[in-house]
Each structure stands twice: as C-alpha cells, then as structure tokens.
Design a protein around this nucleic acid. Sequence first.
RNA 1: GCCCAGGUGGUGGAAUCGGUAGACACGAGGGACUUAAAAUCCCUUGCCUUAAACAGGCGUGCGGGUUCAAGUCCCGCCCUGGGCACCA
Length: 809
Amino acid sequence: MSYDHQAVEKKWQDFWKANKTFQASDDSSKEKYYALDMFPYPSGAGLHVGHPLGYTATDIIARKKRHEGFEVLHPMGWDSFGLPAENYAIKTNVHPEKSTLNNIQTFKRQLKSLGFSFDWSREVASCLPDYYRWTQWFFRFLYEKDLAYRKKAPVNWCEDCHTVLANEQVVDGACERCKHEVIQKNLTQWFFRVTDFIEDQEGVSGLLSGLDTIDWPESTKVNQRNWIGRSEGVEVNFEINNDQFSVFTTRPDTLFGVTFFVVSPEHPLLDKIVTDEQKTEVAAYVGPAGKKTALERSEQKEKTGVFTGAYAMNPINGEEVPVWVADYVLMTYGTGAVMAVPGHDERDHLFAQKYDLEIRPVIEGLEDIFQKTGGTIINSDFLNGLSIEEGIQKACDWLEEKDKGIRRTEYKLRDWLVSRQRYWGAPIPMVYDDQGNEYLIPDDELPVSLPHDVDFVPTGESPLTHSESFHAKEDLQRIEEKLKASGSLAAERKIVRRESDTMDTFVCSSWYMWRFMDPKNEETFCDKKLANHWGPIDLYVGGAEHTVLHLLYARFFCKALCKHGFIDYDEPFAALRHQGMIQAEDGRKMSKSLGNVVNPDEVVQEFGADTLRCYEMFMGPFHQQKPWSTTSVGGLRKWLDRVAKVFNKPQSSGDFKHQVLLHKTIKQVSEQIDQMKFNTAISQMMILTNALLEEDSVPKEVLETFNLLLSPFAPHLAEEFWSKLGHADSIAYEAWPEYDPALTIDDTVTYAVQVNGKLRGDIEMSKDASKEEVLAAAKEIDKVRKYLAEGEIKKEIFVPGKIVGFVLK
RNA sequence: GCCCAGGUGGUGGAAUCGGUAGACACGAGGGACUUAAAAUCCCUUGCCUUAAACAGGCGUGCGGGUUCAAGUCCCGCCCUGGGCACCA
C-alpha cells in the first residue's frame, strides 16, 4: 500500500532537471516574484534538519506563486568563504578550496534530494573568482565614493598563536584554540562608512527610517534600532586648566548635580591634566586597564578608578569638580569623558559610593532616582521647578546661547571594520607604494585571485603576506604602469606590495541577492534593468541570528547602490521572516558534541523528501523553536500514504458529499500559506483526507483540486498523482484553485446553549434561523429547561452562528 | 540590568474582533486481521468523583479584577527561551 518514495522522488527530480521546470525567465510578461533564502555556509557537517525548515517554507510559497501565475525567481548559492575552512586547513592541511568545494557538492546533493524548486542555473559561490571579482568591484565602488577608508583600530590578538582573531574566536576573553589571553592591538584596518547612511539623504531613506517602510518582524526592527542606538543630547564644554573637555549628555537637566568628572583611560589629554602627586597612581591604573579587552571591561561589574589631581569647571555654575579616570567610561562612545551625576545615574552612583564622592540630588518626586521621566527639578538655579523634559530644553538653549555647548545626536553604531588577517576570503583590491600610500587596483586587473602557495600556520601576519605569487614582481609592475598611465601614481613612486588582508565574509553576503538576478554578467555585478526588474526581494527567509549584522550590511549596500544610481530602490528586502530553531528530541540544542544531530539524508531515505517537508511544516508555528521528533515524522508519512489511497480510489461523477469541506479547505490552505501558517494548512488537508477516505469514489475534479493544494508541500507525490490523473505536463504551472465563498458555509450550525455562563447543551439549527427560533428551540432542551426552572430569565444572549445564553435573576 | 518573544493534556500544537478549550497529529491503552510480528483498520484517551453515564465538579504559569461569558481584556507577580549589555 505504501508508495515507493525513492522511485517517485527520483523520477520527478530527473524530470524537473531535464525540463528546466524551475528556470526563471528574465523577460516574462508575468508579474515577478523573488523568494530568497539566506544562502548557507557549506559546513563540513552537511545539511542540518534546520536548513530545510526555511527552504521548504520559501519553496511552498514560490510554488504557490507559480500556480498563481507569477514568474518566480527562487535561487540558491553558497556563502563559501570563512573561518571554519581555514581552521580545518590548519589542522589537517587540506586546502580550504578543496574542502569547501567538496562541502558544496554534499550540500547540493542534499538540497536536490529534497525537491526544492531552485533555479540551479543561477547558482553562485562567493569563494569563486567569477563571484569575488564583483565583491572586489564593490570595494572599489565604495572606495571611489569615499565610503571605504583606512585607519588604525584595535583588533583581538592572541600572543600565543601570533594571530588576529575574529570576535567569534574570542571566548570569555581567551583564544578559543589555545585558551591563551587575548589582548587588544592596534593595526591599520579598512572600514566601510555605514554610519553615513543612518539618517535620510536626498532620495535615499536612512537605516533608521527605512525600517518603517518594510514588512519585517517588529522585534528585528527593534534590534536594528537598538544596534544603531540613536541618542539625542548635547555636547557640553567643561574646562580643565585651560583645555576644553567636552562631554556628551542626554541629561543636561542634571548639570547642577554634577559632582565629579570622569575620563576614559585612553583619553588623549589624560597625561596633560594629571598632577605630579597623582602620576604614579594614575599610571598604575591606566596601564592594566588598557590591556583589558572590551569584553573584559564590559563584564566587570565593580567600578574602579583613580583621582587625577585635576579639577574641571562646570560651565553652568562655574563649580570646580574633581576629575577621575575610570574604565567604565568608553573612548569609543561620545567624547571619552563624562560629567558624573551620581544623584541620578546608576553607574556614577555606584562609583561615588565606592570612592565617597558627593551625591547631590537635583530632581525630587521620583520613585526611582534613575528614572528618566517625571519629577521636578530642584537645587538647580534657573531650572528649578521644571520637569525633566522642560529642563533638558532650557539647559540646551542656555548652553547654546552662551556658546558652552551644542545639541548633537550620538549613535552606538560604528563604521564596519572589514579587514580580516585571514586567507580564506576575498582579497582587498589595493596596492601600496614605497611610502605606504594606498591605490585602488585598476578594474581590468580584477579579480585579485587568491594564491595557492600559502602557509596556513599562523605567523602573526596575514597569510597572504608571504605568498610569492600573490606579490609577483611582474604583476606589481604592470599595475604600477597602469596607475602611472592613469595619472593616479606619481612617476617617482613604486608599487611595492599588495594589501594582504581579506574581506570579512559579511561583505560577500551583502550583495549576493543581486548576483542571482544576473549571475553570468561579465560587465557588471548585475545589470541595472534586471536589478530593478527582480528587486527588491519579495520574501526573504532566514534565522533570527542574523537580525543585526547581515541585514544591516545588506541594507547599507542597497542604499549605497541606490544613492549612486545602480538601482532604484533603497531597501533590499520588502518582506522578511525568520524560522524558529529546531531543537533535538531532548529539547537541547542540536550539536555534534551532544551527539543528538538528526541527518536529513536518513529521513529522506526512510520516509522520503515529501514526508520531511511536510513534517517540518507540521511541527508547529514556523517562527517558533520546536523539538524534533522522529516518531512524529512517521505520522506525516502515514498521512501521505492515506492521501495516496484517496488518489487510488475509483473516480466518480455526480454528487459529492463534501463540497463544503473542499471549499473550506481551499480557502484555509490558500490563506494559511500566505500567512506562513503551514501547520494548520496541513491539518486542514488531513481533515479533508480523512473525509475522502470514507468515500467509495471521488470525482476527478475534486482530486485535481486537492492535488494542487498538496503540490507545494509534497511536490513529488503531487506530480505523480497529476500524471496518474492523465496529465502529461508538470503540475507546477497549473492554476491555483479558487473557492466559492458561498460554499464555505455549512447549511446547519450547532449553537451552544449556556445558562448563567455555563454550558448546558447544544442544538443544531439552520444557518438562517432567526434569533427567536434559536432561543425558542434552546428553551426546549430538557437540561436547559431544568436549569431555567431555577429562576426567572433576566437576559437572553444571541451570537449568530455560535451561542445562545440565558442569564437568570 | 534592559529589550523582545512565550507559558494550553503524557508530547508537538489548535482556538486570540471575548462566545462549546484541547482541532490535527504523536504517544499510550484496547480490539480486528496474522501461526507470529510488522504494516493496516476500528475504538478509547485533559483531570477528579463514579461500576458507568448522553451525572456533577475542576481545568489554558500564579494571585486579583471586568463580564451573562476570559486561554483571549485590565492590574500585580513567577518562570522559560532569545537578543543587547558600563552607550553617559
């Protein structure tokens, strides 16, 4: 009875391949629809059951859109640069290219076995030269538009491995490989000017306001806003000796509550203000503080600091307050110095308590002295009696008028550091002359290829530094000549080396959605017409772990392209959804070390791809995390076997008993796919299946309709049934069924009957029955009559189609 | 600490313009078929009282409240998961 899933699935996968069923056409007259999955990193572990969750969802929607007459672009590719391949190479000496291409083959085989309707002719891999050539083009583009620049910045450095580490490789302040302490070291690094796009520009919405125009989960938007961290405030000038020390504050209303002043240990003017008596103590504090990583500093709860001996003059009242140095003040935010208001700031409060500094309240009537609204200002001269909001305005006006401060907006977001001292990434297309000046490599010299003669053992420098072929004399000479010919390099200068750092892999994944629109183009990353035709992406699906970085960077690329006329839209993803994580059966995270990983290959082999797809959609709400259950997978296979039984029944003509159920099912499945409520869509089809199984025969039209509803979920089986129903073509482009609203309503409805809010019976009535008829009938129910006899009816309740109720006195 | 989700049977979950809580599955128990097992089919399955009920009561994290009626709305808590974390 059970169908042969291996034969059926192979047959249709071969058919789709041979017929190019899912190839998207660039010049179709149909309306376009672009459904995109976040392209995976092809790890050595192979596909995880979490991958097909998102891919099945987009596949269902892509397939339904084809049925609805859209031209659908549904591509897949590989985010294939990255650290794991390189670490694997250090350990085993297998070249990253080899292991990565192997992994891609495995991933591709696994994805194909699941029957996704990807247009494989558009496959891209970010580690291949014909892709990263354009990643390098983007670097050039950003540099030319002054959106890429070089400056010194601290990096994570492991003294033991002699290498730079990515943030992910720093675990609890130590190197993940050798557990040695990680320190901060200053290197010259490349940055992208993401902060340029925070606010709106002419014709391009900002990273903040653009969020208001797109259909994304609210929590993701909140995360992005928090990450950008916009604060409006004022920069206030304090005077120390005769130097200006400005601070940024959002609370100028508390200026009269300032009792001390704090500078960061890295503050450039610190040395200048420290008095001779305090020099030793300050030096003893600043030395170790500087070595701490950002992580360590943020994890330390105890506030520490030392007095510098200096005093700062508060501009609002001329008061001299002591200046301290403390590492709770960050050099990377604001000005690296703060005015301390221990009466109303939690950190300043803790610090003042510890070092016995004055705590002076300037707002009364607050439940919690740290709250930011309510209360009335006191002890503050001309601000007395005002609310916090009024006080902020008045203090700002006063400061600006007296030229002692200026209103300013501060952000947490920093520019994006894209340099990586790593091998397995896209080389940065720059060269340097004998004086260290930087030059863009001419476009006709791209791609800058990754060389193979590279030693992976960490030496403390980027692996590419010591590649002879990478720095081949003839190449540098040729580049030098071209640069001189174009006038960008002075005649007396010589090009001596290439940039040896590679780009953060997030750069590669910030623009891949455009390459899918025009994957073979050798003139540009994507033809403008095609970019405007297919974009923006109608539906983007991926894990919630990427809510901040990837999505923010991709938005930045989109805005840069839009500003400079490469595309006509300023948000890349019109709609975004996240899939929930699939946990192991025991409710823990699936991981190799816990030994609880489920391999999709085994599920496909035992139950079939259609079963796996349906199971993952049936598990629960799409966006919610949920545990895997292999026994439940079998339940979905049982359902598909039952569906097969329905399709094997004799076909009838004439009356069909379940017309209403059929139309209800069309309605529900259609609506619920659109809302990504796949679990209830499947329940509804199960209900239909159970009803049809009881019939001796089923009309052919009913089977065809059911088959169409099923096809996005179980495409192999649907193709098989479709051909059994006598069709030669694929079902993929058959019109989606419509329902008749009149046929989704039953002729009779069951009314619940309540007495004093308690259920006392139910009654079957015609759907058109009047209030009076239903109430009269309800009163005739024995049990209801019994309860009604206990008192007098005070109120009668009638909810059409649902409930009648009696309230007794 | 802050922000965002979410707490419903043995399990995954359904139902949120307030209107019969537990759809649909999994698991479990019983039965049919079979030499037997698997598969398949049929029945039962929230908890308590009861021999049983088409008898009554209790039930959506906890405590209050609004209402004829609350998983759903309001107030106050508890717990779990995720994200951010000294951002002045």
